[in-house]
């Protein structure tokens, strides 16, 4: 038996919005530690690694580890039937061919449940080694979304150049070119508005804006995003999943291989 109850159900709705355009289907691997999902997009260019920690749920029961094969578009459609303030419970029997979602209104005066068929998925997992990145850039997630959106006007790719002075995002195309420079924040009252660069070595890499724009769908989950880069390894874009009190409930991480010159 697997059962997980999340009082702040809107978090699960946001998690689905952050992956449904990038992935068609994926397995939720449920264990005592929590619910994990790892999947590549259909073109095998980007990788999503997602964790919802068991102690982030108000109730969590997982008698034995199970893998729930899910059509993510279907799950997203069902979660849209939940109100933003609903409590969401996910339930699956061992060896079941279906998963149940229960939505309770805060006053408990409206309870709905939806059963969705599970899929048999032959999933591939990639081993992601622990990496000490040369640069880790933390910035407001809304700022990163805006940069990706704005530079998409100019080209398909963005060059991210991280030095001790700050970060420069550049794009060029037939129209012309554009640059956005962010300096490290000297003094900010609010931590979520800060730009912080932790740099061991300067790095310049090129990435597809199409994929970065997919990643920014996770911005509603977190006020800050971190970009971790080293030469010749995939970029890691991480959004921490925090509840209203700021306690960590997990993360969504996206990995994207750099583009190389033809």
């Amino acid at each position: 038996m697997f059962e997980a109850r999340l009082v702040e159900g809107s978090l699960l709705k946001k998690v689905m919005e952050s992956i449904k355009d990038l992935l068609n289907e994926a397995s939720w691997d449920c264990s005592g530690n929590g619910m994990c999902l790892q999947a590549m997009d259909s073109s095998h260019v980007a990788l999503v690694s997602l964790m919802l920690k068991s102690d982030g749920f108000e109730n969590y029961r997982c008698d034995r580890s199970i893998s729930l094969g899910i059509n993510l578009a279907s799950m997203s459609k069902i979660l849209k039937c939940a109100s933003n303030d609903d409590i969401i419970t996910i339930r699956a029997e061992d060896d079941a061919d279906a998963i149940t979602f229960m939505f309770e209104s805060p006053k408990q005066d409206r309870v709905s449940d939806y059963e969705m068929k599970l899929m048999n998925l032959d999933t591939e997992h990639l081993g992601i080694p622990d990496t000490e990145y040369a640069c880790v850039i933390k910035m407001p997630s809304g700022e990163f979304s805006r940069i990706c959106r704005d530079l998409s006007v100019l080209g398909d790719s963005v060059i991210i150049c991280c030095t001790k002075d700050g970060v420069r995002f550049s794009a060029k195309g037939d129209l012309g070119n554009g640059n956005i420079k962010l300096a490290q924040s000297a003094n900010v009252d609010k931590e979520e508005e800060a730009v912080v660069v932790d740099m061991r070595e300067a790095v310049t890499l090129t990435f597809s804006l199409r994929y970065l724009n997919f990643f920014t769908k996770a911005a509603p989950l977190s006020s800050q995003v971190s970009l971790s880069m080293s030469e010749d390894v995939p970029l890691m874009v991480e959004y921490k999943i925090n509840d209203k009190e700021g306690d960590s409930k997990g993360y969504v991480r996206y990995y994207l291989a750099p583009k190389i010159e033809d």
């Binding site: 073109s43 095998h44 260019v45 980007a46 990639l126 080694p129 090129t206 994207l256 291989a257």
Partner: peptide, 14 residues
């Protein structure tokens, strides 16, 4: 996309 590497070029299947 031109010049775009696959992610599995970097991470081995486990």
């Amino acid at each position: 996309e031109s010049g775009q590497q696959e992610i599995s070029t970097y991470y081995a299947r486990s």
